[in-house]
């Protein structure tokens, strides 16, 4: 899995006009996350990407350190310490860190600060990144719309913001595009990390007749767990954020999208090598190989050729720019 991801990263860097070559000197990267780096979701996806780049370039070229369970009030101290220790790139993985990054960046002009998801353009030494998740949501929505028998589909959202909001709206667009009768039950837990609440929400949706669910952020594992624990073996799941095809619950997962943050990390290193320390937004989309989408090959006949054909066509159209998704028009 790692090699294709790295290859995609190289393509991504190439499309950004940069070569994915190792840095000349040593690059020190720090990651700050609110959850843990093994949460099988949001935080792990960035951690895995940095580790992959470190492995690719060698530990002599990339030094990596991370801080977990960092609430925004604690993260400021951690980020300041990294900056004082001359870390080159400090990635604060979450939009909740925007204020602290914005305030701190002018104090450490030689340090590259990064936060996301955000489409904002930060200061001269601040990069932002924004997964255009409506694209992965659209593909998962197509699958949901074509697989559901009850025409009721559940969506376990964390909050209605950032890439989660884009994913949710893309999912609704995809499901409705192939099945106008489908009813997408969009609901939010109000939290990125409350696994129990996500499980409760998934149970509520299944009780309401949903036979296909999806969700984003690390809390979605709670919802996936509820789907896997359901005695009804005809309830399916589509994954987002981190590939959920290798987890124990994967027999219920039809397909999964993951973020290719490897590419983002490579771009950050390459930009810094080129003397650009910030002031740009790095999008992730299918066109620049910022997403990895995969089917579960072990679910048998549920994923029919017609479904795969529709999804593959949409994916190709998105990558080619033929399909534009007006995700902002979707109202819940």
């Amino acid at each position: 899995m790692r090699k294709p991801v790295l290859a995609l990263g190289a393509v991504f860097a190439f499309t950004c006009g940069l070569s994915a070559a190792p840095p000349k000197g040593k690059v020190k990267i720090a990651l700050i996350v609110e959850s843990t780096v093994d949460d099988k979701g949001w935080c792990q996806s960035m951690h895995d990407a940095i580790k992959a780049v470190q492995k690719q370039y060698g530990e002599a070229k990339v030094e990596y350190s991370y801080s977990e369970k960092m609430k925004p009030v604690d993260a400021g101290s951690a980020a300041r310490q990294y900056a004082s220790r001359k870390f080159d790139i400090i990635i604060c993985h979450g939009a909740q860190y925007k204020n602290l990054v914005t305030e701190m960046a002018p104090d450490f002009k030689d340090t590259t600060f990064v936060f996301g998801t955000s489409a904002d353009i930060g200061g001269k030494n601040v990069f932002t990144y924004m997964p255009e998740s409506e694209e992965t949501g659209y593909l998962n929505g197509i699958i949901a719309g074509m697989v559901t028998k009850t025409n009721v589909v559940g969506l376990v959202g964390p909050v209605d913001g950032g890439d989660a909001a884009r994913y949710d709206r893309g999912f609704v667009l995809g499901a409705k595009a192939v099945n106008p009768k489908v009813s997408v039950k969009v609901a939010h837990t109000g939290s990125f990390g409350d696994f129990v609440k996500a499980s409760e929400l998934a149970q509520t949706q299944m009780k309401a007749g949903a036979d296909f669910l999806t969700g984003s952020s690390q809390q979605a594992m709670g919802a996936l767990r509820a789907v896997a624990a359901s005695p009804d073996r005809n309830i399916w799941w589509a994954g987002q954020d981190l590939s959920q095809l290798n987890v124990a619950e994967s027999p219920r997962v039809l397909a999964a999208s993951s973020y290719n943050y490897t590419a983002v990390v490579e771009v950050l290193i390459a930009k810094r090598e080129a003397g650009v320390k910030g002031g740009e937004n790095i999008p992730l989309n299918f066109a620049n190989k910022g997403f990895v989408f995969a089917y579960n090959t072990k679910v048998g006949k549920v994923l029919t050729p017609a479904i795969k054909k529709a999804v593959d066509k949409a994916k190709a159209d998105l990558a080619a720019g033929k399909l534009k998704l007006d995700w902002k028009a979707v109202k819940f």
Binding site: K69, G193, S199, M221, G222
Partner: peptide, 18 residues
């Protein structure tokens, strides 16, 4: 009960303020 009956899993901070 949270880890064995309700969520049927464990994750860091599963209790989440309860």
């Amino acid at each position: 009960y949270l880890s064995l009956c309700q969520a049927k899993m464990f994750a860091d901070d599963l209790v989440a303020g309860r």
